[in-house]
């Protein structure tokens, strides 16, 4: 019988193979999508959907992403968009937390929200949509409020943890635990035209009190959410792959109204 290696080498075109080929390999060799893609990447053959990632993401890096595991805490504004970015670039496993259901007032900004899914659990909807984008992706969902003390064990094996929460109190607690456990922690927060980011930092300098921020009065427009989620996604991928520089020991404060991008020492 033909080996998977031979099969993929025959079907590949200029170093890429289509999802149709992947499905045929899955059936023929009784493998999962992730197993086929992992094997192909080891041979230097990349799934066609990543063609436009190269050379930003090399074949070896693509394999590293497929083997990586990221937790997204909160699937509202930031979480839904970060989830899409990570699924599209090729992260292999995601762990999603959110206790909430989609409501009409989410539609101004939250990824995958629309009138058809109002009333449905956010983690369920987001997971289903991400699976359609990236069939190799493994997703674990938790339809519950994230409790740092009780739930950290569920995400402790993750390579990176995305702070897509909307509560400064939990954001701060999560940052402190991640710092203590030496985990990659990607902070993002938004309010009106403003965003803030930090990577692998504890958030004491940003959240001195447990009260909510300006977002309770100024709200969260779509573009601030997608901007902030894009930055968090880039920080996450850079941190996992060890590329470039991240915002460790820094705080990035963005004011999109007046185009100010300020980096402070944390």
């Amino acid at each position: 019988m033909q080996t998977l290696k031979k099969f993929l080498e025959q079907k590949q075109e200029a170093g890429f193979f289509s999802h149709l080929t992947c499905k045929a390999a899955m059936q023929r060799f009784s493998l999962t999508c992730k197993e086929v893609e992992l094997y192909a990447l080891e041979l230097g053959i990349t799934p066609l959907r990543y063609k436009r990632n190269q050379s930003t993401i090399s074949c070896a890096a693509q394999k590293q992403l497929l083997l990586s595991h990221v937790a997204i805490i909160g699937c509202g504004g930031l979480g839904g968009h970060v989830g899409e970015n990570l699924a599209r670039i090729g992260v292999g496993s995601l762990c999603l937390f959110d206790f909430d259901i989609f409501e009409e007032h989410n539609l101004n900004r939250q990824n995958f929200s629309n009138f058809a899914v109002i009333g449905e659990q956010k983690v369920t909807v987001v997971s289903e949509q991400l699976q359609k984008i990236n069939p190799a992706l493994h997703i674990k969902t938790y339809a519950k409020a994230f409790d740092v003390q009780k739930d950290f064990a569920l995400i402790e094996s993750c390579d990176a943890i995305i702070d897509a929460l909307d509560d400064p109190k939990i954001k701060l607690a999560l940052s402190l635990t991640c710092k203590q456990k030496n985990k990659i922690f990607i902070h993002g927060a938004i309010g009106g035209f403003n965003a803030q980011h930090a990577t692998c930092n504890s958030l004491e300098n940003l959240y001195k009190t447990t009260s909510k921020g300006i977002e309770t009065s100024v709200g969260n427009p779509s573009f601030t959410v997608t901007y902030a989620a894009a930055l968090q996604s880039a920080e996450c991928i850079k941190s996992i792959l060890g590329l470039g520089e991240n915002l460790q020991n820094k705080i990035l404060l963005t004011n999109l109204l007046e185009n100010e991008f300020i980096i402070l020492d944390n």
Binding site: K171, A189, G191, A195, T209
Partner: peptide, 28 residues
């Protein structure tokens, strides 16, 4: 921040200090 260093609200300002205040941002 005072002179680009994080400080607490009870910091006593000194001649020539620059005090910078940023509102809390916590949405997600």
């Amino acid at each position: 921040m005072v002179n680009s260093k994080h400080e607490k609200e009870d910091y006593i300002l000194q001649e020539g200090d620059t005090l910078a205040l940023f509102p809390k941002v916590g949405g997600g």
